[in-house]
């Protein structure tokens, strides 16, 4: 861990904001949805950072902004120190070789009219990496690397099973030899027995190539398996971020605690009898004042309704944004004050 933290981050996201206009009527003032509302984090080389949260928390939008499938409204996305948040389509191209994406739906993320070879060969052609026989041999080795065979080269996506399709998607992402792969729920559409295969494959590839992953997920049990650090999002903001072990052993934010308590355990002797959290995620069009979690929070007090809490360090590398917990934060009190 210490080696990882000493090297400069591969990806640094600073105060990322993504707004969408909501059209109400012709004469009414334009409203905005803040899908992502000031998110900052880093991903180091060889590290897996998991971005977790419930639907509508903005985790997918963060991933899509990093891929520049969505244009951020403000903030910086630095890859190897270069801010790509406001680059034009053409300027983006060299950057796309560094960051690739694996999608949630292995069926819809492959063009049904292209063969496996064409799908994996496309990035090789787009970046002029390899041509002719060289390209073919690279495609073959990519197929083998993700656990598919040479015989799959000429097959179409519909001839593959769900797990095999996801392997194809991973091979396509690997083709340009990226440093970071953004996985947008890459496991959630797969059967459990196949999920484990893909988890192991991703793990293996990380060790082989020193890849970094930004893993967007909602399944906390999977996240614990594969990530080094975890960031928990709620309504467009990160409420807690830290080492996986710390987050799972001693979650700080009441939302993280509730999220962990809600995960059903595959053990009939450990049945959860209480409802961990009441209510549902409010609409991001009209988010609650102050801390967005306060209407569902068992600890909420007056200040939470008025003031957005700022992230505080509770342990080395473990941050959370909560007024109530911050009051009892001994670690912060011990730290020298910095401007």
């Amino acid at each position: 861990m210490s080696e990882l933290s000493s090297s400069p981050p591969l990806l640094q996201v600073d105060d990322l904001i993504v707004r969408y206009p909501v059209k109400k009527g012709l004469l009414q003032p334009r409203k905005h949805v803040h899908a992502v509302n000031g998110v900052s984090f880093t991903v180091r080389r060889g590290e897996t950072l998991a971005l977790v949260g419930e639907s509508g928390c903005g985790k997918t939008t963060v991933g899509r902004s990093i891929m520049r499938l969505v244009r951020p409204s403000s903030g910086a996305i630095r890859v190897d120190g270069i801010d790509v948040a406001s680059l034009s389509r053409r300027q983006l191209k060299p950057y796309r070789r560094k960051i690739q994406m694996v999608f949630q739906d292995p069926y819809a993320s492959l063009n049904p009219r292209m063969t496996a070879g064409e799908i994996i060969g496309e990035p090789l052609g787009n970046f002029g990496i390899a041509h002719g026989a060289d390209r073919e041999s690279r495609i073959m080795s990519l197929l083998e690397r993700v656990g598919l065979g040479r015989s799959h080269f000429h097959r179409y996506p519909h001839e593959f099973s769900g797990g095999q399709r996801q392997r194809l998607g991973i091979a396509r992402a690997l083709a340009v030899e990226p440093s970071l792969i953004v996985g947008d729920e890459p496991l959630s559409a797969l059967d459990v027995s196949v999920q484990a295969q893909i988890v192991n494959l991703l793990d293996h590839l990380q060790q082989e190539f020193g890849l970094s992953y930004l893993f967007i997920a909602h399944d906390l049990a999977v996240v614990q398996q594969i990530s080094h650090r975890v960031a928990v999002m709620y309504l467009g903001r990160i409420v807690e971020i830290g080492e996986t072990a710390d987050i799972f052993r001693a979650p700080i934010h009441p939302y993280t605690q509730a999220l962990l308590a809600a995960v059903p355990l595959p053990d009939p002797r450990k049945r959860r009898t209480i409802e961990p959290l009441r209510g549902e995620v409010p609409s991001p069009i009209s988010p609650p004042s102050g801390c967005a979690f306060h209407p569902r929070c068992p600890l909420a007090e007056d200040r939470c309704r008025r003031e957005v809490p700022r992230a505080q360090e509770f342990q080395a590398g473990h941050f959370a944004a909560c007024h109530v917990m911050a009051r009892n934060n001994q670690y912060a009190a011990l730290q020298p004050v910095t401007a």
Partner: peptide, 8 residues
């Protein structure tokens, strides 16, 4: 999306 991301 995948095509955009892979530089098409």
């Amino acid at each position: 999306d995948a095509a955009i991301v892979t530089g098409s």
